[in-house]
């Protein structure tokens, strides 16, 4: 048994501080695994990145009234919206933290999803080696656009 971990820095995320709208879009084929074989299986058998090149999230900060983008601090937020992976869109609500420091915004969140909810089939032969739930960690830094 070993941890299967992959990183993806090919992400565009936009937060609208006026409306609380938050969106992420990432390229599925850019997940980088330690092993080339894991990467190949992920792209070809699980996420099917040629057929479904992107995963997206579009949502809003539910407790926008608790936020003060003009004041430094760490704010606990709940973000609700639609998560689209592998051609399946599901409503999710996830906790996160927004950090405001000298005008810059960074966002972190950790939440879990089940591959089967997104119609990602794990072959029977490796079912015991792959967890039923996958942990997703988000870490974004934003720049102000006028």
């Amino acid at each position: 048994m070993e941890d299967i971990k992959a990183d993806n820095n090919q992400v565009i995320s936009i937060v609208n501080t006026a409306t609380g709208d938050l969106q992420f879009s990432l390229l599925n084929n850019a997940f980088h695994f330690k092993k080339a074989l894991m990467e190949e299986h992920f792209n070809e058998d699980y996420i099917e990145s040629a057929k479904y090149p992107k995963s997206t999230f579009k949502g809003t900060i539910s407790n926008l009234k608790d936020m003060n983008f003009g004041k430094d601090g760490i704010y606990n937020v709940t973000v609700s919206g639609n998560l689209s992976i592998h051609g399946v869109t599901k409503e999710v609500s996830v906790p996160g933290k927004l950090t405001i420091k000298k005008g810059s915004i960074s966002a972190t969140s950790t939440f879990k999803i089940k591959p089967k909810d997104y119609n990602i089939k794990i072959p029977a032969g490796v079912k015991n080696n792959i967890a039923e739930t996958v942990e997703l960690t988000v870490n974004c830094t934003y720049e102000k656009k006028n």
Binding site: I12, I14, S25, N29, P53, K145
Partner: peptide, 15 residues
Amino acid sequence: SGYISGDAEMGLPGD
């Protein structure tokens, strides 16, 4: 890896 579009409404292009 490909192209991700930005947000046309907010005037942000993709990379």
